[in-house]
Design a protein around this nucleic acid. Structure first.
Lengths: 124, 124
DNA sequence: TAACTGTACTATGTGTCTTAGTACAGTTAC
DNA sequence: GTAACTGTACTAAGACACATAGTACAGTTA
């Protein structure tokens, strides 16, 4: 369910956060669903429990998951809403990316094609 | 001419690389132009000379600049071409960004607006 | 010759990420 | 109640990248 790239420059705990968010985005995990326990996931990924805990506590701080001592870590009710709002905040990032590519000499046509390609593909 | 954000998570040497690339992209610096010397820029930015050297040597490795011992560091003849090719390689990144935002519930209309905004703005 | 240029090297400090180990408290099923 | 799970907290240590500090050498230029 989770996969860690040890060669990546992004920290393991961030990779876990991203993957949890992706699972929610894709509808594979839904509000109320329980995430793997800190210990079991640490074994599955051959990673220290502290690293998993750090990921979960950040997901909790973001409001995406909710940790309950003794019970587990669960996807929050409004997880999709939070992720959607965060994505909307990234619209400006999209604008800047387009502008930079344009400045670098990428044609408007090439950019439009890349965008349409994003619209047409629904699979991961 | 250069500005460093000490609060940023991106290393200083990478910020310098990005800014050199941006100056070339914007046409402020052109092939043959000399970059500030390692020592003078290190003083200007209150940064260690080694940090500047690291940035310059990476620009050299990328083919964007060319360092000549005793003379200085100069923008390479084909710097724009290299940057343009690199930008084209990022078209897939653009596609993925669009796809992700779509999955997260951002509307197609919002995405198109952000893209058009990038097209229409020419100022930095 | 003097003042600049890039380059190379060692040593050190710092911060983040990760691991390791231990401990405590809440929950659940038997 | 007990055993086995859950999250949480804490200290200690190692690894690594980034940056600093200082020195030194060779090439270029006026």
């Amino acid at each position: 369910m989770f996969r860690i790239d040890g060669m990546s420059r992004t920290p393991v705990y961030e990779q876990i956060i991203e993957q949890v968010e992706k699972l929610i985005t894709l509808g594979i995990m839904s509000p109320g669903d329980q995430l793997p326990s800190v210990r079991s996931l640490s074994i599955e990924l051959s990673v220290n429990p502290n690293t998993i805990q750090k990921a979960y506590s950040e997901l909790d701080a973001k409001g995406i998951a909710h940790s309950v001592p003794g019970r587990g870590c669960f996807i929050a009710d409004n997880a999709e809403e939070i992720l959607r709002d965060a994505a909307k905040g990234n619209l400006s990032k999209l604008t800047e990316l387009v502008r930079e590519m344009l400045l670098l000499g990428v044609t408007e046509k090439e950019i439009r094609e890349a965008v349409e390609k994003g619209f047409s593909s629904a699979d991961n």
